[in-house]
Every structure is written in structure tokens, then in C-alpha cells.
Design a protein around this nucleic acid. Structure first.
Lengths: 113, 113
DNA sequence: TACCAGTACATAGTAGCGCTGAATAGCGCG
DNA sequence: CGCGCTATTCAGCGCTACTATGTACTGGTA
């Protein structure tokens, strides 16, 4: 959709994916499909794969190749200890930001349009 | 501070500044100082000025030069109609994102550390 | 056989945003 | 005069998400 959403996703999309992986192991294609179901209609496939590669390079996730009945083998990602700690940081940062914004919204109620 | 906060601010900082300008006209230095008080300790000054320039170029704000008793003249920004509409879009996008994240947090309570 | 849709991953190139670091400028104070 | 505070500006960098494309494997169908 808009540029606003794209920019706002920077930083948060990583946390979203980490949160998903915290609840269960998953692979790229699956994550993309799930996000689309949740209303993130236009998150590009390539974005998720690139993100997962970054997570792997930073050793926040464990990876396991699993053969698939259809198509090439899946790369199943799961959160490791470092990833869980990093996710904790993410939630703290997010909470801080969300609180400030909620406060701003209630004090400046100018819902345009 | 961390890289996480920096990335998360992308897109949201713009909305924050718009929200501030919705409640009252302000100039760059003032906004920076206010943000620091609110806990955004390490938002660089240059960042705010660059952001204000972008807002001006996109015609979301009105600008007025006001002489200052100390230092060079201030550029006082205020939100115009387009800016208020854009701020409305921002809040909608933010709400969507915040809802998804809140849902994710409650279903995957893995507060690390 | 030939073709296509669906699954699954990968990557080169682009654009946008915030940060770093520095420069410029005006005013008041010791 | 030199220092500190106010106030703005700018070049260059790093990071993330998007676009667009390509690869690879399976099953259905004409």
C-alpha cells in the first residue's frame, strides 16, 4: 500500500518475524503467506527471504533443511537463545515507542479526513 | 541508542513530528528538545531538520520565519490541511500495525532476558 | 510430449530514512 | 576576544523494504 506502511515496517517487520518464530519454527514461504492472511497484503516475498538471511547471519536463528513434497527443500527457521534475548529487546523498544505514540494521539486528537 | 530503535523510528518519527505540529506550531530546535524530554534521548538534531525540510517540500506544513532574541531566525512550522489529512493516514497505519503487534505479543509471550 | 500453475528460495538494483560529523551564524557573558 | 548556547544546514553512510527477475521441483492437463 502506501509509502507510510513501508517505512513504518522498517525495524518492526524483523520483530514480527522473530515473534512468529518464537511461537513455532517456520520457513519463508509459510511466513509470507501467514503475513498476507494477517492483512499485510503487500509484503514482498523477497523481503522475507532477505530478512531471514540477515537473521541467520547474525546468529539469531537456527536453520534446518527439510525436504518438501512440492518444490525445493524448505529452510525451516527457529529462534535460538540469542534470538529470544533480541526479541525481548525488541518488545521493550516497541513498548516505549507505542506508549509515547499513544500519549501523543490522545493529547492531539486531530484524526484528519 | 540501539539499532533497533533507529530502524523502528523510520516512518514513525515523521508521524510523531506531524502530531506535535498538529497541537501547536514549532521550530526544529524546539522539537528536538521536546523529544529529548520525552525520552527520545538520542535523536540527532540533523534528523529533525532534514525531516522538516521533507515535510515542507511535500507541502504538508506551512513555514514562517520568526526572528529570535538568541541566534539566527527560527523557522516556525505549522500543519496545513494536507498535513492533517496525512496525519490521519498515519494514525490509521499505525493503529493497524500496533494491533497486529499487540496480538502477536499476547500470543507469543516470550519476553527474553 | 509440451505447457502451465503452484511451491519454495535467491538476488541484483533502487529508493527512502535516520545517523554521523561538521560547518555556519547570531547573541550574551566573563 | 573566546566560550557557550541557540538555530539551521549539508554531505556521506548504513540499513531496510520493494521491484523484478531467475532458479528449481512437482503435478495436472491437453
Amino acid at each position: 500500500m502506501g509509502k507510510q506502511e513501508t517505512e513504518m515496517l522498517k525495524g518492526t517487520l524483523e520483530g514480527i518475524v522473530l515473534a512468529i518464530l518464537a511461537s513455532r519454527a517456520a520457513y519463508g514461504y509459510e511466513i509470507t503467506a501467514w503475513l498476507r492472511e494477517q492483512g499485510f497484503a503487500d509484503i514482498a516475498e523477497g523481503t522475507i527471504y532477505a530478512l531471514l538471511v540477515r537473521l541467520e547471519q547474525r546468529d539469531l536463528v537456527d536453520v534446518q533443511k527439510v525436504p518438501s513434497e512440492k518444490g525445493p527443500p524448505r529452510k525451516v527457521y527457529s529462534l535460538n537463545a540469542a534470538g529470544r534475548a533480541y526479541l525481548g529487546d525488541f518488545w521493550r523498544t516497541w513498548s516505549f515507542l507505542a506508549e509515547r505514540l499513544e500519549q501523543l494521539r490522545t493529547t492531539t486528537i486531530t484524526e484528519g479526513e
